[in-house]
Amino acid sequence: MSNPGISEQISSLVTEAREAASASKSLAELEGARVRYFGKKGMFTGLLRSLGAMPQEERPAAGQSVNQGREDAEAFFAAATENLKKKEREEKLFAETIDVTEPRGNNGIGSLHPVTIALRELVDLFVGMGYETVEGPEVEYDKYNFELLNQPKNHPARDAQDTFYIEENIVLRSHTSPVQARTMLARRPPIRIISAGRVYRADEFDATHSPVFHQLEGFYVDKNVTMSDLKGTLEVFAKRLFGENTKTRFRPSFFPFTEPSAEVDLTCPTCGGKGCRLCKNTGWIEMLGSGMVNPKVLELCGIDSSVYSGFAFGIGLDRVGMLRYAVPDMRWLFEGDVRMMRQFR
């Protein structure tokens, strides 16, 4: 380059522009600087114009140098713009900071009744085992609640369940079993149903009894159904509901609609069978009633007992719920104190 003066001018202008870019505190300031250096009347334009005074042959090289310097300086401005933009966005976002820990009221999550929770688990279990859910009326004919279940009028076993009467022949069902009778009269085997719902007995309301409670009934009639099938089925139930280590124990009992009959105990879910207050130190909890469907019941409901056999079982859902959550007093389940209800998950 024949004119060393011009290249010094260029480099000092580039340096000056770079400094101005870095010194800009805001995009607006940066824009001002940009106009000052690169605008139509900016300094790079001025420098370029001043080349007119140079000898013709030197002009192209000098012009190239000016443009090169300008490009370099502009790159600085671009970088500076990016930085400032980022910074300003950050500042803006920072300014939008909220107190994420600020407590806000909400109504929270609701809750299901323990009876519903128990019901759902059992329904899932038994539907998975091929059972169908069926429902029936809560105010029921004596015929379905008792007579077809081998409890004719004045049968002494009726005393065991103090029944509410609406009329001589209409009762508040004392168990979910009338659904069995209705189903048998309507369908042919194989029948595999569960039925759950409210049942009523004239018991005073106390820590362990309620005149209204909830039952789930299982009922299976087919060819060659055995009592060992009943035992196997209830063992699956017990393990599913109270854990794999739960053991079952069958005790002979009596129900008019089953023969043979069995009451089933489970190892106490609270102490795991070691003995505690809940199981009165026996390690066992009485859980359900069951048995082989009495052939008389099958015959009363029009099913040939020489061909078919079946089993039935009944579980108190309130009791399952109480055991699951170690609720000591049944009244708590019917009181509706939201502070109690919300604890059930």
Binding site: V123, M129, G130, T133, V134, K231, F250, R251, P252
Partner: peptide
Amino acid sequence: YHHLHSTLPASAVSGKKSDRM
């Protein structure tokens, strides 16, 4: 009763939850 076996009835049918449920 402790001599009862634990067997499960052969299942050839699928279960069903009612629409209402």
